[in-house]
Write a protein that binds this DNA or RNA. Sequence first.
DNA 1: TCGCGATGTATCGGACCGATACATCGCACG
DNA 2: CGTGCGATGTATCGGTCCGATACATCGCGA
Lengths: 212, 212
Amino acid sequence: MLELAILGLLQESPMHGYELRKELTAKLGAIRAAISYGSLYPTLRRLQAAGWITEAAETPATAEEIPALTSRRGRVVYKITAEGKERFAQLIAQAGPETYDDTGFGVHFAFFSRTDQATRLRILEGRRRTIEERREGLRDVLARAAERLDAYTLELQRHGLDACEREVRWLEELIANERSGRAPTVPQTGTAGGRRETDSPPPPGESRKERP
Amino acid sequence: MLELAILGLLQESPMHGYELRKELTAKLGAIRAAISYGSLYPTLRRLQAAGWITEAAETPATAEEIPALTSRRGRVVYKITAEGKERFAQLIAQAGPETYDDTGFGVHFAFFSRTDQATRLRILEGRRRTIEERREGLRDVLARAAERLDAYTLELQRHGLDACEREVRWLEELIANERSGRAPTVPQTGTAGGRRETDSPPPPGESRKERP
DNA sequence: TCGCGATGTATCGGACCGATACATCGCACG
DNA sequence: CGTGCGATGTATCGGTCCGATACATCGCGA
């Protein structure tokens, strides 16, 4: 998952670790708290070893005369390679079961603008399926095992069930929009009454050489 | 987290691993998919080594005469010890930062009927704080960095923000109820219009059978 | 009788987290 | 003037948990 996210972000521009973490936090803030350096740096090393990213020298020109003194460590800027872009395209297109759990779906969704429409639709429907199953599980417990559980546990299940129903509706909207070729705009039920006028559908992205 | 959940469940009745997993899935279904055996069994071993739980022989009487033949492995039933109950009480009362993340809060909440009211209130307020901070982070991104992000990422943030606002409202209800000493009943906005008539606040002890 | 799905215990490699360490830079405050 | 502190920045370590896999038993229907 982290691998996919890093490859996706570096496709937008080269970055160093700290920056990557901030961007990651901004982009995935809705689904996870913050990426730990304890997973970020080892992953960067792994990606570099695999040849998907490379170090880009930070201040390449003006090579200082005295390199030995006060060995400045400096920032390490990474950029994606051609192989890395291929890897990203492959990861983004193939959908396993982990594509539909909370984190996996969030990461895939965050890069939907780099995903072709057929894949987007497949992922949205897979996610809907997953949430519907979770929802059915919760309904079962509430209907069949309610007397075994205390009031707090029941309230937790109710809240979870509500969240599932809400997410299914959200996914339905997105799927409908996707089918009709519109931008991912969902009628705002939330806070401010005003709805955003997102002006244009994202040009259906780099439509890779998917078979016509 | 798993440790706390196991200790809590075994306090209700002795169980073997498979059963434990099913109960865990039922009780925590709203917050996590299913506990992996790859973490369950090692944790059981750890808890046993620490003396919090012990093996309870499954078919103690009728010791078979031929123990060497066809060495039946059989189920391993665990029960909690007195030290285990102390450990549970200690874990449930102390609140660190991990108490307020999604999983941690869910596990604590699922055992609220074994938690005293002051601790319940503290945890609910801590959780609200955490979600409010997440909400502010999302609002910041939506207000300040919207033009940097694509339509899909924005939609993800909006959906996340909506979930945060919803959860804060839910927590407000629970906190209000807690303060007034009522049972954890939240006015149902969801599917079926009927509201449950939970008759009494659960006496802070083990109040098993809830409704008659 | 044969197979198959549910029950049941167990391990292994890997992903990710939280704590920690350490170094530099700019700047506010005394 | 210095000095301390928060932001920036890279890095490691131990531990928790997951997903895949293996293997054995039991009941039941074809």
